[in-house]
Amino acid sequence: MKTKMTAAAKRRLVKSVLLHAGLLLFAAGCVYPLLRILSVSLRPGDKLVSTDLSLIPAGATLLSYSKLLGDTMFLRWLWNSLLITLATSFIGVSLASTAAYAFSRFRFPGKKAGMILLLSSQMIPAGMLILPLFLMIMKLKLMNTYLGMIIAYSVSSLPFSIWILKGYYDTIPRSLEEAALVDGTSQVGAFWRIILPLSTPALSIAFLFNFTTAWNEYLVARVVLFSSKQYTWTLGLFELQGQYITQWGMFAAGSMLVTIPVLCVFLYSSKWLISGLTLGSVKG
């Protein structure tokens, strides 16, 4: 059976083919570097430095992974990062959850000034505060320790966390708390028993944001930590990538091990993160 396409249908087909081609091209550009790391991490030791572009190399092995886990302190670096990151996220989210509640539910003098202070703190160049924090940590004799890192990180995501949580609390109807207040709970009790349990999605997003920020941080760690036992994984990978081309395989293996969980978490949480980022704009 011969069907004649109308001009409009033809145009639609051409458009869709072009769209798919364009999107595929861009998507390839986004994914290819990641696939290249994967490919390098699977290369056998004698072919690490090759100009081969195939994705699954000939004679693929997991040797780089076992070398990375056996010969370097990679697991230790991951552990250091994990401890520092969990502690900072915990402190950050706890402080943010109550502060955001105050901003969401109460009217008090200085409310607007407080919100502006939070927003404008985002304008301070990150690089600018590293120096005074470094000197403070030195003075407290906390160089090269977990505690120094936790102190340096703990408030860096606080303004953003407060901002996200306030936005979420604003969407919870006040009538819920009012009912609890009538039943004789205190304001703090209502926050603890009603608002916090209802806000688990927003709390976990704030936690994830704190977590990824601290997890991926490099510049502060560079100046505070100096013995390789205390390194976070970012410092460790930089060392592996920097020094010898022979460690390229281990760098790639480490990158894969760190990237995959982070990617999963990000893709899972991106929807909420983005709504947090654009909240101010949509409302403004």
Binding site: A102, F103, P132, L133
Partner: peptide
């Protein structure tokens, strides 16, 4: 305004120590 200020105090103490003070120190 007891309740809101108490709720805000820990976060702003943290910001004062680790954001405002370093700025002044700079």
């Amino acid at each position: 305004h007891t309740v809101p200020y108490l709720l805000l105090a820990p976060a702003f103490a943290g910001l004062a120590l680790l954001l405002v003070y370093p700025f002044v120190f700079e």
